[in-house]
Simulated assay, not measured.
Amino acid sequence: MAVSKTNDASSQDEFQAAKSGTSPVKSFLSGGFGGVAAVLVGHPFDLTKTRLQTAAEGTYTGGIDVVKKTLAKDGIRGMYRGMLPPLLGVTPIFALSFWSYDMGKKVVYALTPKRTDPQLSLPELAFAGFFSAVPTTLIAGPAERVKVLLQLQGQGASAAGPKYNGPIDVVRQLYKEGGLKSIWRGSGATLARDGPGSAAYFCAYETVKKLLAPAGADPAQLNMLNVITAGGLAGMAMWSLAIPPDVIKSRYQGAPHGTYTGFLDCAQKTVAKEGVKALFKGFGPAMARAFPANAATFVGVEYSLQLMNQLW
């Protein structure tokens, strides 16, 4: 009887711990560490993807051709063109994303007060993942807009030289051209990409990490190889869904004002001109980036969180 009561108490403690989740401050900070790691590892792949998606037909033969031409023209520094906006923006974006993901899980628990199993189902994890993308779009939308414009201006030759001198200059010129609306152009497209993508992202990570844990072991106990594998596969799961809306987002955000009336208009014109295959431009670089960048993300998140748990 005493053993039964002890087990019941232990289960109840586990349930309460799951419902309480990670400290919001720790979730926020660990997400920021993960974001910085993702940018440092993944930006050259992202630049390749964006240029391949937005270049005129025939400009490049593929991702490797983008890299060769970029290196020939600008050297290794060219592969990191436009990195400052995501580096500055990704820290709060990822911080907010992981914080929002934990908040999303708490929303699920709040909506299911009679549940007896602390483990969330895949649909519940997907909800929390999609939920995480909503607040992050407020930051990610403008950051993506600035990043895309900076990445694209090094793509073609221009006698007049680069239009923008840096991210602050991009924001200044966009505001002058169209106010805040111009700065936030494509934010809806960013959510169309990141909502389903984040749902797949967190579902895949939680599932793979659990599958890789030895029988009877707690998936929360960290194993570097498991974190790398689960994080990398989570990134690939995300981009397998996100690449078509990402193509449209990049084109819409990078096009001159008036080229498209909106996200759907951009999608329709892209498909009409280049076919459905155009929606998968940049798929190779995106998937090549997905594994290392997101493995780095979760290593940054998990191990910074572990360190914070040891410190306080």
Rank of each mutant, 00 (worst) to 15 (best):
V3H: 15
S4W: 10
D8R: 14
Q12K: 15
A17C: 02
A17V: 10
S20H: 14
S23P: 11
K26S: 11
S30H: 05
G32I: 05
F33L: 00
A37T: 01
H43V: 04
F45P: 05
L47Q: 05
T50H: 07
R51L: 06
G58F: 13
G63Q: 00
I64Y: 10
K68L: 13
D74T: 11
Y80W: 06
P86H: 06
V90M: 15
A95W: 11
S100A: 15
Y101S: 08
A110M: 08
T112I: 08
P113V: 13
P113D: 11
L122M: 09
L122Y: 09
G129I: 06
S132I: 01
T136A: 05
G141T: 04
P142K: 12
A143G: 13
L150R: 00
Q151H: 06
S158Y: 01
V170Q: 11
V171Q: 00
R172H: 14
L174M: 09
E177A: 15
G178A: 10
I183W: 09
S187L: 04
A192T: 03
G195I: 02
S198L: 14
A199V: 07
Y201P: 03
Y201D: 13
F202Q: 03
V208N: 01
K209V: 04
K210I: 00
L212Q: 06
A213K: 05
G216Y: 10
A217Y: 00
A217I: 03
A220I: 02
Q221E: 15
V227P: 05
L233I: 10
A234R: 01
M236H: 04
A237R: 03
M238A: 04
V247M: 04
I248F: 06
Q253H: 07
G254L: 09
A255D: 07
G262T: 02
Q268D: 14
Q268G: 05
V271C: 13
A272C: 11
L279D: 03
F280Q: 09
F283S: 13
A288F: 04
F298K: 03
F298Y: 07
V299S: 00
